[in-house]
Each structure stands twice: as C-alpha cells, then as structure tokens.
Simulated assay, not measured.
Amino acid sequence: MNQQLLMMLPGMDPDELAVIQSITRDMTDWEQQQFVAIYKGKRKDQMTMLVLTLIGFLGIAGIQRLIVGDTVLGILYLLTFGFCGIGTIIDIINIKSLTFEYNRKQAMEAANMVHMMRGVQ
C-alpha cells in the first residue's frame, strides 16, 4: 500500500497494519484511496476506546461495547454499572484486542464497499 495513504491512518499497530496491507494488496491505487477514505471514518484508535471505557467508572458503563456493536452487552453494562465495575476492568485490560477486532471488521466492511464500487464503474 502507498506510504502516503498509510500516513492518513495514524496510530496503527503492527497487527492492524498487516490486516490493512493484506486487504489492499490487490487493489488499484484508486481503490486504495477509496478504502482509506472509508476506513478512516470508521476506525477507532485505542486511546479513544480506552477513554470510552474509563467513562464507565463515572456511571456510564458500556459505551465502548455499544460503539463496537456489542449492543446486548453494552445495555447489560449500562444496567449493571459494568457488572459492578468488573466488566469495565476486564475491558480496560483487553482494550487492545477489543479495538483490533472492531477495526478489523471495519476494514473488511470498507473493502467490501470498495469492491461494490468497482462493479458500479
């Protein structure tokens, strides 16, 4: 992938970079630009997810789970104050994997959107 495009996605860890490179390997330059434009708007950085998780200690637990699409777990966190803080602590410990999984799904979604646009051209 073009280095200039990668610079538009700051804060990527090596695992996320490997996923992005494998997804965009067979894309043209135009498709890579479209992918980055879509993915940039969808991805979350680890610090944002950490802040959202820490907000759980202020009484609004589960925001991080709602953001990543775990709606049922997010609502349970809200109703139980993050399982009395235990779930929130576990999410803080696992924030890297929680963020990586969310970003991986968003990258796949962005790639699918680019492939659909390819058929429209």
Score class of each variant (00 low, 15 high):
F100W: 09
L6K: 10
I38L: 13
D13N: 14
I92G: 12
L52F: 11
G85W: 06
Q3F: 04
D70L: 08
I23C: 02
D13E: 13
S22A: 02
T71F: 11
L58K: 08
A37T: 11
V120C: 00
G119V: 03
F83D: 00
L54Y: 08
R43H: 02
R25T: 04
I90N: 02
I93W: 08
V114D: 09
G62D: 12
L66Q: 03
D26F: 13
E31D: 14
L50F: 14
A110Y: 04
I86R: 09
I90H: 00
D13V: 13
L66W: 03
L78K: 00
F100H: 10
G119D: 10
M7E: 15
W30Y: 10
M7W: 07
G56F: 13
M8S: 13
I67F: 15
A18Y: 01
Q21D: 07
A107S: 08
V72I: 10
Q64M: 06
T88M: 01
A110E: 05
E101F: 11
M113S: 13
T48D: 10
A110F: 06
L98R: 02
D13Y: 10
A18P: 01
T80D: 06
E101M: 14
A111F: 09
D13P: 05
E109D: 14
L76E: 11
L73I: 12
K105L: 15
Q34E: 14
T80V: 06
A107C: 05
D70G: 04
Q46S: 13
D29W: 12
G59A: 15
G119Q: 08
R65L: 07
K40M: 12
I63T: 06
I60F: 15
Q21A: 00
